[in-house]
C-alpha cells in the first residue's frame, strides 16, 4: 500500500491562511489503512484545524468528506457539484489523490494535508516499512525476495557495505535492519548463497523515475473506437 502521514498542524494552518471555507477530502483506500487519511483521521484533523485556526484568530470553516478512492476520477467527480462554496480542497489522500483532485477540478485549489512516504507494509502493530520504490525492473529474483533498492540506504546491488553493525543493523539508522545482511541470511537458508558471488551488473535506471514520468498503456482495456465499417 501507499503509506503516508499527516503534516504538522502548523504547516497545514499556514496553507489555510486567508481561506474562509475549505472541504477536507479523505480517502478510503491506502491512507485509510495506514491511519493517515481515512474517515477517522479526517474527523480528527479537521477538529484540530478548526480549533487551531479559531485560536489564531482566523477561523476557517472546514467541512469533511471521504471518498473511497481519491486517485480515480469516477470516485471524486461528484464533489464538483459543491465546490463553488469552497476556497480550497484539503486532501487527506496520497500525492496521487491530491493530483487527481487537481486534474478533475481545474478551478479549485487543492492542498495536501499528508506527506506521502512510501510503498510499504505494516511490519508490526503501528509500524510501517518501505518495501518497494517502483524502479520498474524488479530484481527480487536475485536477492532472495528482499529489495535492496528500497531497503538499503545506498541502494547497493552487491552488498553489504562495511557499515553493518552487530546483529545486522544499518549504520545509517540502527532501527532499520541491514537489507543485505538479511539477503545473505535468507539465501543461505535457501542454500543459494553462491548466487551472490556473481557481480550484479549496473542497473538500467531508465525504467525508474530517471526515465521521466512513467506510463502504462493497455490497448486491450481501452475504449474501443468504432470503425465506420463496424456498424
Amino acid at each position: 500500500m501507499i503509506v503516508a502521514d499527516q503534516k504538522p498542524i502548523e504547516d497545514i494552518k499556514q496553507m489555510l491562511r486567508g481561506k474562509r471555507k475549505v472541504l477536507a477530502v479523505g480517502c478510503g483506500t491506502c491512507v485509510a489503512v495506514c491511519f493517515a487519511g481515512g474517515k477517522r483521521e479526517v474527523g480528527l484533523l479537521c477538529s484540530a484545524l478548526r480549533m487551531a485556526t479559531d485560536l489564531a484568530g482566523e477561523p476557517v470553516e472546514i467541512d469533511e468528506t471521504v471518498v473511497q478512492r481519491e486517485c480515480e476520477q469516477e470516485y471524486i467527480e461528484h464533489l464538483g457539484e459543491r465546490l463553488d462554496e469552497y476556497d480550497a480542497i484539503l486532501s487527506l489522500g496520497c500525492g496521487v489523490g491530491v493530483q487527481s483532485l487537481a486534474d478533475s477540478f481545474p478551478n479549485t485549489r487543492v492542498l495536501p494535508a499528508l506527506n506521502t512516504k512510501f510503498m510499504g507494509a505494516p511490519s508490526g502493530q503501528g509500524v510501517w516499512e518501505e518495501r518497494c520504490q517502483g524502479c520498474g525492473n524488479c530484481l527480487l529474483e536475485y536477492t532472495g525476495g528482499i529489495c535492496p533498492i528500497s531497503r538499503c540506504p545506498k541502494q547497493l546491488m552487491n552488498g553489504p557495505c562495511g557499515g553493518t553493525d552487530q546483529g545486522g543493523r544499518c549504520e545509517v539508522d540502527p532501527e532499520i535492519p541491514c537489507a543485505w545482511y538479511n539477503i545473505w541470511a535468507r539465501m543461505d537458508n535457501l542454500n543459494i548463497q553462491d548466487e551472490l558471488m556473481e557481480i550484479h551488473p549496473p542497473k538500467d535506471w531508465s525504467t525508474s523515475r530517471d526515465g521521466g514520468m512513467r506510463r502504462i498503456v493497455r490497448k486491450d482495456l481501452q475504449k474501443p473506437e468504432l470503425d465506420e465499417g463496424d456498424s
Binding site: D54, I62, D63, T65, Y75
Partner: peptide
C-alpha cells in the same frame, strides 16, 4: 469561540 460544527458531506448518492 463557540461555533456550529461543520457538516459532513454525503457522497454523491446515485454514483457512490
Amino acid at each position: 469561540t463557540k461555533k456550529p460544527r461543520s457538516k459532513e458531506i454525503p457522497l454523491a448518492p446515485e454514483k457512490s
